[in-house]
Computed example of a mutant assay.
Amino acid sequence: MRTGRHGRRRRWPRALTPWMFLLLPLAFVVTFSMVPIATMIVYSFTDWDGISPDYAFTGLANYTDIATRPQLFKVFLTSLYYLGASVVQIVLALYFATILSFNVRFRNFFKGVLFFPYLINGVAIGFVFLYFFQPGGTFDTFLAFFGVEGRLWLGDPDLVNYSLAGVSVWRYLGLNFVLFLGGIQSISPDLYEAAEIDGASRWDQFRHIILPLLRPLIGLSVILAVSGSLSVFEIPYIMTGGAGNSETFVIQTVKLAFQFNKTGLASAAAVVLLVLILIVTWVQRRLFPEERTETV
């Protein structure tokens, strides 16, 4: 009988071991993700100003206000610039990942150069490029060598979004680059050897081996690109504050909460953005389902 009891006591901790490892991460997820989201949804049905301890439930009034204000959705046009920049970013990341996956001189150096911007804090990047694009700054000095006149890159409403989107390409290129590079390096070398025996060129290897096997990663990058373009905040907020047609939906939401003290309306706007991102992600996964590949 003692042996049976001791056996039960030994098996009990083993059954709890996986849950003990998951306890702390789950606690963080619930505390810093689930609870704030639930609280935000509750506040979206109130008229809370973010300061007063008292608030009243207003039902769907905030959502009705958002739906009847076209100017609140006009800022989504700004997201198109960042979406276009994301396409450029994915193409460049795929190009550099393919080139540097082969034997190239100084490839480790170039890998570090491409990935380094992603490690820098977004606030620091915003301030650096704020001086980079200022009149008479680094960019204008560089263009002066080619006889090109400087422009108000952040002050011209027709140029500001192109400038900000270019900064986002520089910053997030490294993330997609690392994802694609890891996917390419996980491909079996036997496939390349068989392709070379058959006389396939580098372009043929990319088109028939690399690109098909990277479709799941490319799909993930597209999801991140769409959701990121809808929720752009730190770069335009730091560099322009949303001025000159550079205001995004998130900047507008922050202004509603902290500048106009309409936290209830801002919470409703945040819920709308969350729902839009979930819908876009769901549609993208339905149109481009994940393909399972079996390795032999």
Rank of each mutant, 00 (worst) to 15 (best):
L211A: 11
I251G: 04
D190W: 14
T253S: 11
Y237V: 01
T263F: 11
R215G: 01
H208M: 10
G244R: 11
L265Y: 13
S186W: 09
G183L: 10
V222S: 04
Y237N: 14
A243H: 06
T248M: 14
V232C: 05
E247I: 04
P236N: 05
S231L: 04
P216E: 02
L224D: 05
R202G: 01
L179H: 11
G182R: 00
T253A: 10
L179T: 07
L220A: 06
F249Y: 14
Y237K: 06
E193T: 08
A268W: 04
V250I: 15
K262D: 01
V250N: 10
A270G: 11
A266G: 05
Q205C: 08
S229R: 08
V226W: 06
L230R: 02
F260W: 14
I184G: 12
F249S: 08
A194T: 10
L181C: 08
S231Y: 02
L265T: 03
I210V: 07
A270N: 02
L179K: 07
P189V: 13
G244F: 15
R202D: 01
Q252P: 00
L214K: 07
F180T: 08
G183E: 09
I223L: 10
S267A: 15
V232Q: 14
K255M: 05
A225S: 15
G228T: 03
P212C: 12
A243P: 13
V250P: 03
L213T: 10
A200W: 02
S229H: 09
I209R: 04
K255S: 09
S221A: 14
L256A: 06
L230W: 04
W203A: 15
V226G: 03
V232T: 13
E196K: 15
E247V: 06
G241E: 08
L213I: 02
L217S: 00
T253D: 01
V222T: 12
A269S: 07
Y237R: 06
Q259R: 12
V254N: 12
G244D: 07
Y237G: 03
F258N: 02
Q252L: 10
T240G: 04
R207F: 11
V232D: 01
R202M: 04
T263H: 04
A225M: 08
Q259I: 08
M239W: 03
G264H: 05
V254L: 14
S227W: 03
I209V: 13
L230E: 03
Q185D: 13
V254R: 10
A200R: 06
I251W: 00
A269Y: 12
G242L: 07
Q252N: 10
L220H: 05
V178Y: 01
E196Q: 13
